[in-house]
């Protein structure tokens, strides 16, 4: 057959692109994405409700908006929306296809299993980062918008835009890190929701853990990237803040490491749908 004779990197690049584009299509434009859109709509609805219930005095000055959004971002967006969206999108990459009995079509293509894992993962990261990144931006805008001109100038100032960029970057890294974790859960567990709920518990407990255990969580590094520090409550155990570069490196390493384990796992993947 003509055209299919490329090998090595050029072929892998093309295959990764094809797989990623297919995953983006499925994760963004199909009914499969509905739960993620419902989740993404929640912070936006929250921002709208806030604007409705806001008093006139609060409306005049955006003094507390930065802190309020920081808390909503940390306790709601990161902990619930990004976490569960990543669970929905990334668990489906492999486990979903096993349940739909369609994974074998990928395994019957001339694609290295590692390439398959990377292509699907990148598709998931782009899809989740696009949806949730956009959600973060819209939510921030809706938080500042009710304050009128004062809010807009605060948002469009250099520090305001830097904050927006930091939140979006944190969201993208959260998608990458949680995504790799859920991809792995989907490969190793028939019911990935059990480890997902256990991990959520671990993430929620992180502020109360000693420093040497905090490093084993994702939210610890994500928290270091948030532009506005927030209080974790009176019972939280304080730890030395991590430099931003180290937090980014740690999240990239976590994502890469988990993806590598996932790619290794796919090498031995067998199609036994009846066992599901």
């Amino acid at each position: 057959m003509t055209g299919g004779n490329s090998h090595g990197w050029p072929l892998w690049r093309r295959q990764i692109t094809v797989l990623a584009v297919q995953e983006i299509g499925r994760s963004v434009f199909s009914r499969r994405a509905l739960p993620v859109y419902l989740l993404a709509a929640m912070p936006i609805a929250l921002a709208l409700l806030r604007s409705i219930f806001m008093s006139e005095s609060e409306r005049a000055h955006p003094t507390h908006t930065t802190t309020e959004f920081a808390q909503v971002f940390h306790f709601f967006l990161l902990r619930f929306i990004v976490f569960f969206s990543a669970a929905v999108l990334f668990v489906k990459l492999f486990r979903g296809e096993i349940l739909e009995r369609s994974l074998h079509y990928h395994l019957l293509a001339p694609v290295r299993r590692e390439v398959l894992a990377v292509g699907k993962y990148l598709g998931g990261v782009v899809a989740s980062a696009s949806i949730l990144g956009a959600t973060v931006v819209v939510t921030i805008v809706l938080f500042y918008l009710p304050h009128g001109r004062a809010g807009l100038s605060a948002l469009t100032s250099a520090s305001g835009l830097a904050e927006v960029a930091a939140y979006v970057a944190t969201t993208v890294l959260a998608c990458a890190a949680y995504g790799s974790l859920f991809l792995l859960a989907g490969l190793f567990f028939k019911n990935p929701m059990v480890p997902a709920v256990l991990f959520l518990g671990w993430e929620v407990l992180t502020p109360f853990l000693p420093g040497f255990l905090k490093v084993l969580s994702v939210v610890h590094y994500l928290g270091s990237l948030e532009p506005v520090p927030i209080s974790q409550g009176p019972f939280a155990l304080l730890a030395q803040p991590i430099p931003e570069w180290l937090a980014v490196a740690a999240l990239v390493a976590i994502s890469g490491g988990l993806l590598a384990i996932g790619a290794w796992k796919t090498r031995g993947l067998e199609v036994t749908y009846s066992a599901e």
Partner: peptide
């Protein structure tokens, strides 16, 4: 089309 694209066809 997807299958063929994975085979490297443009």
């Amino acid at each position: 089309n997807h299958t063929l694209a994975l085979h490297g066809l443009d």
